[in-house]
Design a protein around this nucleic acid. Structure first.
Lengths: 382, 382
DNA sequence: CTGTTAGCGCCTTCAT
DNA sequence: ATGAAGGCGCTAACAG
């Protein structure tokens, strides 16, 4: 039941031997030979995007020539090139990246996995990364792991299925097992961690000097005369948490302030828990004079809780955060915070990927610097 | 120079006729026939992802069978299915979505174009959309148009090249020409506008009742006793701007308050300009008693400018925004605002896409409701 | 300068 | 229940 591409008849068609590995047919009505490739009716391809074959057929040339012309390769007759370009334009031809990716085994996509993007931090990183990637011809595929290890694994698998050319990731606070990342290394897929890195994995990394930033922050509180200083830390599973916490401990020790375990709380970074622990600290029989929070959203909750209790900041309580979320400058009093170059972090991660791809560079760690921004939440002089 | 896949020899190979359209070869050393397909050396495929062919070869079955087994199709011997599944697991096989997409001509990706995602609104929409899309097996590809028409067009092209199965978009304030969207319609690609829609395009839409929300907001100001009410509007190119502005005018008229053109400013929604116009209004010889801003970021700038001048809110100036950005509840005084279900808007847009895809439903417009949230910026009773 | 062929990884008839 | 073959759209040798 082969149908002739010209007359659409079925009965008049007979087999006519194999030529170049293709079964040929002969239509007695049209008196013409054809192969199965010819039988794809233009009608059947109704709502399909235009392909180089469409252009080739229209122009009566081969699809290779079209391909070459489109890519602006050498060895092309200027005339044909122009003709191709013009028709492509006219037909609104868009190259099929799926096909391109299949043959080149590269998708021109890079994946990004972030734990959330409700707060300022991650969206800003994304903006930075996307800018440099887009300029280099890459598209970004963004996944939210929602702080869930399971989801993170699923995200990695999904991105691998899409054959992303590389991955930029900030791990969840639940990520203990890193086998899903090891698998990537084996497959030679560039992996760049930023902010929340995997210390046990020897890959590219972009971080800030968390220890130095946090140390500076606590030191600032001490300089302002605060002694009883609490710290609301992130989960110990995250290196950033551990570093900032260690800096807190070391700064206290250096100042000769004894550490009170009651004043150190580590939590899972959910807004809800932040509220709870902020209140808990403020309601302590002997409440802290200052609180250094692992990040700005946490510090904001502390300020809100304090204000709700009529506690005067910074006279009765000082607060310091981390990251310089725009809210820090808006809330009253302004939140003293350790600013990190978030946007730059995204750009750097993306650049690291670009440098790596293809040229298998050795794992690099880029450390960006922080800056303490003093506002009203920790100082009366502002 | 054909190399035998078994013994790797070249000299012992001779042609051995064509079978089923494929040139066959015979190796005198191995005494075995093979075709070119067999000659792909496993060595050469060093760092490549595992494919169904790898699994098939390992198991000594055909790739069709592997394909069927993997997809859990009928007609498969339970034994082979298990064997395939197990090996796939063991080899960490991930189906190649590029190949899958190519053959099915669908990518399982949907594109999203937003003007920015620095503020609360768009990230929140993305979160909502991504949740329902992910659950349905789709991945999201997000682009920022940066309020640039050129970039928007480029984004559409890029997403088309990636052969996204649909598009969720909020247009830029510069989008006057909509031909790039018309092209999508012609190709039958589901298109859902949200928030910033294209009135001239008959597609799916998700909006809130902007007019009603804005009217309610201005009415509230009038109820509170404010008469000289200004409006900082968005660019007239956006329907949301026009609707909110019209509501402002109508609410004034209904209350019998004469419209003062000096008090209506429309601007391009950049933070910088927001600051400038906020100051301008406050510095007017006869400044407004209240300002209704097109969105929360604008309103925030107004509050900041007022505070910088020592103007007391709400006694000397009332402020109302739109969207209920989380900052609204944090800033002091709290910002009265028209809350819109942002997260739900994302979910709805995604659902609309899912309903459409495949089943060519008629263009639908979903209108979500707003709610006026009264805070300290417009009322002393709070 | 251009056409031909093979193949990327997968799905889908069509045979067996 | 399984294999063989063709094709999705494109690039990449290899012949001319």
């Amino acid at each position: 039941m082969i149908r002739c591409p010209k007359c659409q008849q079925v009965d008049a068609v007979t087999k006519a031997g194999i030529v170049r590995g293709k079964q040929r047919y002969f239509c007695k009505t049209c008196a013409a030979h054809f192969t199965l490739a010819d039988t794809a009716p233009p009608a059947a391809r109704s709502r399909h995007q235009v392909t180089i074959v469409d252009i080739a057929r229209e122009l009566g040339i081969s699809k290779s020539t079209v391909s070459r012309a489109l890519r602006g390769q050498s060895d092309i007759h200027p005339g044909t090139r122009e003709a191709v370009m013009e028709l492509a334009q006219q037909l609104d031809y868009q190259p099929n990246l799926l096909a391109y990716g299949l043959v080149k085994s590269q998708s021109n996509m890079v994946g990004m996995i972030v734990p959330e993007f409700r707060h300022y931090f991650f969206p800003e990183v994304i903006i930075g990364a996307q800018e440099v990637l887009q300029a280099a011809g890459y598209n970004l595929m963004i996944c939210q792991s929602n702080e869930s290890y399971q989801t993170e694994v699923a995200n990695v698998k999904a991105l691998m299925s899409s054959r992303v050319d590389g991955l930029l990731v900030s791990i969840t606070s639940q990520t203990n097992n890193v086998e899903h990342f090891r698998a990537l290394e084996k497959k030679g897929i560039p992996l760049v961690f930023f902010n929340r890195i995997c210390p046990e994995l020897d890959t590219h990394r972009v971080v800030v000097d968390d220890y130095a930033g946090a140390f500076r922050a606590v030191q600032h509180l001490i300089d302002q005369g605060y002694r009883r200083i609490a710290h609301i830390a992130g989960p110990p599973s995250l290196l950033v948490s551990r570093l900032r916490q260690q800096a807190y401990l070391d700064a206290l020790e250096q100042a000769g302030i004894p550490f009170d375990p009651e004043l150190l709380i580590s939590y899972d970074l959910t807004d809800e828990k932040a509220r709870i622990y902020a209140r808990y600290l403020l309601d302590l029989p002997q409440p802290p004079e200052a609180i250094f929070a692992v990040n700005d959203p946490t510090a904001i909750q502390v300020i809100l809780a304090a204000k709700a209790r009529g506690i005067c900041i910074p006279d009765e309580l000082a607060v310091v955060g981390f990251s310089d979320d725009p809210i820090s400058a808006i809330i009253e009093p302004g939140l003293t915070t350790v600013a990190q170059p978030v946007y730059e972090m995204g750009r750097t991660a993306a650049r690291l990927f670009l440098e790596t791809v293809g040229t298998q560079t050795a794992p690099t760690t880029r450390v960006l610097q922080t800056e303490l921004i003093v506002r009203g939440s920790s100082s009366r002089k502002i």
